[in-house]
Design a protein around this nucleic acid. Structure first.
Lengths: 167, 167
DNA sequence: TCAAACTTTCAAAAAATATTGAAAGTTTAA
DNA sequence: TTAAACTTTCAATATTTTTTGAAAGTTTGA
């Protein structure tokens, strides 16, 4: 397999994986492209490589920037903007963990806390509801704490933790 | 807030969270409903509670069974099938971890390994490609190992691990 | 200030995904 | 073996999500 084929396969795979985890394909593919590009790319570059429209490229680049995993850069003497991805995959993991916690887990925890504190009227259904939503709250809380560990520790925490667990 | 409102809110929230993580809404909602139901429910029950069609209910229940988090049961003397969710949320986490690893992470690892072993022709783009896909492979491998730890350990591993990390 | 170079916005269109419901299939009690 | 009770399938439909592309907006050098 030569470079071009491998590149296509990688971008394709990253796009599909994204879809499975609730990230739109174009966004995941743009990210993949920037991740393996030795130089920052312009919007034009991205459009051409992935065959997507200007509007689509613009919107998804913005989202990637909002997620904190793609940066705008400028080249001296050029008006055009260039884009580059966070290259350190550990930092990438940290940032994604941070955002998923903030955007998704925290609001879910809030709702779970709210609904799990309804008054126990003694019926089986209420008892079960309280029991299960409390258990889910605890699980989500644990998951969130782990995500926050990823966020707050040095960037190779993941690897270190794994090593520790193996012992 | 009384039971009915809390129940609706919980099912709604679980459905939305599912969507964000790439799980279809009906499937997540059926799961939520079974999780808090003290008794197994029939297909009819699920259809009525969630206002979804027979076909939709049938297909999503099957998927939940494929994921290993919903079980078929029978009531003595009844021909109808009843469904119940895995009630232990730690076991639930284990099962989801197991399936996501098998279905999504493993195939991704395979592709990453494949594309990261192209021949280094000395160009900057090839060097960057190899470097980044190798780094991603390592990250995915670590994540997968952690998922597998979740899968293989006793069901309260998650909580225990978190406690250990706090020390 | 102008206008070229570039980016963003957003309504419309396309594509992907989920849902329906009725027909076909299956199971079981009598 | 039949037929009622129940489940599954799947083509058609609806809904949601993504994508397009052209117009509007912005920035900057002269």
């Amino acid at each position: 397999m030569e470079y071009k084929e491998a590149k296509g396969k990688f971008i394709q795979t990253w796009g599909s994986l994204g879809t499975l985890w609730g990230i739109n394909k174009a966004m995941a593919q743009i990210h993949a492209l920037l991740l393996i590009s030795p130089e920052p790319l312009s919007m034009e570059d991205v459009m051409e490589e992935l065959h997507i429209s200007r509007g689509n490229t613009s919107m998804n680049l913005r989202q990637l920037i909002d997620w904190g995993i793609v940066y705008k850069t400028s080249k001296a003497g050029e008006r055009k903007e260039y884009f580059t991805s966070e290259k350190d995959v550990n930092e990438l993991a940290r940032q994604i963990a941070r955002e998923r916690s903030r955007r998704e887990i925290q609001p879910t925890l809030k709702v779970l806390k709210e609904v799990s504190t309804i008054e126990d009227d003694g019926t089986a259904q209420t008892k079960e509801f309280i029991k299960q939503t409390k258990a889910l709250h605890e699980l989500a809380d644990t998951a969130d704490s782990i995500l926050n560990r990823v966020v707050n520790q040095e960037s190779n925490w993941l690897t270190k933790t794994f090593m520790k667990l193996l012992k």
